[in-house]
Design a protein around this nucleic acid. Structure first.
Lengths: 366, 366
DNA sequence: GCATGCCATGGAACCGGTTCCGAAATGGGA
DNA sequence: TCCCATTTCGGAACCGGTTCCATGGCATGC
């Protein structure tokens, strides 16, 4: 014997039935007599038969796999969305094939691969803007596509209103009496076409205008999406002397961490000397007590993947386009001590933010 | 026309060649005349032909996909390894099919699915211990398996010596003169079979013994893998009065954050009143200036995936079993101010750790 | 001029499931 | 007892590539 490969035919022969019957048993058809089913199942067990996915895919005409394109996966916000997506797909019996996109070239390569090799049934794109010509192609080919944290005409998508978010964040700072509000954003995403940061900046400008404040472009800066870069940019603003900002809106929590580092570096107390608000409500912002704009990250993944599941079932994604809610989460980095429900330590210790950060009383469960 | 499906046969007919030739062109065989190749390629272009992955898989007998089992993906350490794995696989032209494992039931389900449905060519397991019977099965079936952050006889793996790591961390604290060193670990991983935390605990005990210190089990505690839980456990230790620990080894950075929260809650200054060291060298530990044990996370993924690529190419994974190096990264949470290269702010401001944390001068690039 | 051998090529067999159609078996009703 | 509907089943055709073998053409060597 050179090929001990056990296929559906072998099982059929052993069990004394036709291949069709075995197939029916495998797929849980109810067109099978109970006794027969048992006989087939026991034969499968005995021969240790394992169906071959690709053969099934070929005849069924679908792969039961979904391609997931994610922008720099290491970003915590992206990560959270991805988890939501994977969990939903798994539950639906779909394989989650992940493509990590870190630069334009990689993006193009992965897109080609996905589109031209017909390896997946659908595509979920997370925080990425797909180039126009690709979109056209995808549309023409009729490949199911769902956007998470982005939006595209005629495709199901889950997104937030970044402009509104930027507006909310800035208004929060303005409402605390600040007039010189700085903006620290990133310019990285632009490389992959998506720029939440820019949209949030627009919201920032709108809020200023609504408050009758003339924007000061010395208080606006962009750089790579790292806290180090943000710290450097912020540092420059703090050196403006009396023209320095008294509050800063960082377009993401990661950047907000950098802003705070810079403030400490300049001996500025937070929030008294400079209030800070970030965006995303990552774990880190909770740990460091940074005010932020909360957006439902995990949920965005869940909803996006659910839409994909619907599409693949031939249904129409229920809310075709879905905008998720945002809300400001005020914390110590903007409100400071004068806040309210503080633990006893909270009012007692006078000190820089670092302290408050770590003391803000989570109830310690014992 | 009811089926406009364009297959290799259509292309062959259109180009006036045989299917074999088209296939050869697609696979870059050099057995094809240049003129013919061009003709076929242009036909492919003209018809917008796209080969079907599953058909190819079926005849080739392989899927060119690798299954990745990851324990709770959201853990930053796991995440980092995953990124390494995905990047290497992508470069090798292999699909990365990710299975997120959050509990025992899910684990079993995914394992069955992977093993019994023959959907992937190999399995990479990250930070998970595969149940004995599954291992037996995998071995018998000859499915390529690579372990990352774990080890199993006769399978290629990339791992660290957690016992040694725990030892190093504890020794670091002992070397600073501490005698009452506490341990905060987690018990979650146990649910999935893997327990780095326990191994690190063993290292902790060994270090104590080597120093001639009798372990005090009031200073040992375990709980869920969250900083909140760690804070609660630590809090209890701080209430031991004069018997409280003067230093704590947390088996991961996430837990170390909790330890620090608890210290602040109790008005203890770090590192003066209590030194802390974590494990993993996550971003957060750098931001919060927490001493830690560094392990090459991204690299573990890269090396693991490389081994898988070798295996699938029929080669033997080069270093079959590979132990990655560990090293203590001393930071403010254990060394404190008496350190050395501090910025000017560093020595000036007297205060709790929170301050130092955020002031420790990273050189701010301008 | 003929044997030899390489290159390029056509195409049938094959990979291992799924599906559909026709048929056999079963059972109920007239 | 016969007819028809229903349930269950067998198996050929099919999905769309890959591979191997046979073949034809052409150049080289004697």
């Amino acid at each position: 014997m050179r090929k001990p490969t056990i296929g559906i035919a072998t099982v059929a022969a052993e069990a004394g039935v036709g291949v069709g019957t075995v197939s029916r048993v495998l797929n849980g058809s109810n067109q099978v007599n109970e006794a027969t089913r048992i006989r087939v199942l026991s034969t499968i067990e005995r021969l240790d038969y394992r169906p071959l996915r690709s053969a099934s895919s070929l005849s069924k005409g679908r792969t039961d796999a979904v391609g997931i394109l994610v922008s720099v996966i290491t970003r915590p916000s992206v990560m959270a969305r991805l988890v939501g997506v994977i969990d939903v797909l798994s539950d639906a019996g779909l394989d989650a094939v992940v493509f990590n996109v870190e630069n334009r070239a990689q993006f193009e390569r992965h897109l080609s691969s996905i589109i031209d090799q017909r390896r997946v049934d659908g595509i979920i794109s997370i925080s990425l803007r797909i180039p126009e010509e690709r979109v056209t192609r995808i549309r023409k080919l009729g490949i199911p596509l769902v956007l998470v944290d982005n939006s595209l005409p005629n495709f199901p998508c889950v997104y937030i209103d970044d402009v509104a978010g930027g507006n909310m964040a800035t208004k929060h700072l303005l409402s605390l009496g600040h007039r010189r509000v700085g903006f620290i954003g990133d310019n990285e995403h632009t490389a992959l076409g998506k720029s939440s940061s820019e949209d949030r900046y627009v919201g920032y400008l709108m809020a200023l205008e609504a408050a009758g404040i003339e924007p000061d472009f010395d208080l606006v800066a962009r750089g790579p999406h790292t806290s180090e870069a943000a710290a450097a940019l912020t540092s420059a603003q703090f050196e403006l002397g009396q023209h320095r900002p008294t509050a800063i809106f960082a377009s993401s929590d990661t950047l907000a961490v950098g802003v705070i580092k810079a403030a400490q570096h300049h001996g500025l107390k937070i929030p008294d000397d400079c209030a800070v608000i970030g965006f995303d409500n990552l774990d880190i912002s909770s740990i460091l007590d940074i005010s932020t704009v909360n957006q439902p990250l995990l949920e965005s993944g869940i909803k996006g993947a659910s839409k994909m599941v619907s599409l693949l079932n031939g249904e129409i994604a229920k809310p075709h386009r879905e905008e998720l809610p945002l809300d400001v989460v005020p914390r110590g980095s903007s409100l400071g001590i004068q806040r309210n429900n503080s633990t006893k330590l909270y009012g007692v210790v006078e000190g820089p933010i670092g302290l408050q950060i770590l003391q803000r009383g989570e109830e310690l469960v014992s």
